[in-house]
């Protein structure tokens, strides 16, 4: 999506989001935006981070209302599935638009 056409009003830079911009949080958002929903262990493996680091970033994103989790049992063990909320998806797309605006044409 082109930055300056994402919204008919306002500066694309308005979408720059410091909560999302932290590298691991941005990668989490990118993964969840592409996958739709992903298991915690898969996110951890794809991003090559420890469970505690991922958990910390997911907590921040959940507190911002950008990510939600769903718990499901698999092979008698509880698994956590993560996905972007509609607000989270919108914020991520707005942040992408801001990054593209920074890069320029």
């Amino acid at each position: 999506m082109k930055a300056d056409t994402r919204s008919g009003t306002g500066d694309p830079m308005d979408g720059f989001d410091t909560t999302i911009h932290a590298p691991n949080r941005l990668r989490i958002c990118a993964l969840l935006d592409t996958a739709g929903e992903a298991e915690f262990a898969v996110v951890q493996e794809q991003l090559d981070v420890s469970a505690s680091v991922l958990s910390k970033h997911v907590t921040v994103l959940m507190e911002a209302g950008y990510v939600e989790q769903r718990k499901a049992v698999r092979n008698t063990r509880q698994r956590v599935w993560l996905r972007l909320t509609p607000g989270g998806r919108q914020a991520y797309q707005a942040h992408l638009a801001a990054l593209r605006a920074i890069v320029g044409p």
Binding site: T18, R27, A30, L31, D33, T34, Q46, L99, R100, V103
Partner: peptide, 23 residues
């Protein structure tokens, strides 16, 4: 904390890598 154009470009490239891997 706004990134420079070079940093933003590197960030977008990294996001593309994550997206490709997830895809």
């Amino acid at each position: 904390i706004r990134p420079t154009p070079q940093q933003a470009r590197a960030t977008l490239a990294e996001l593309e890598r994550v997206q490709a891997s997830t895809a």
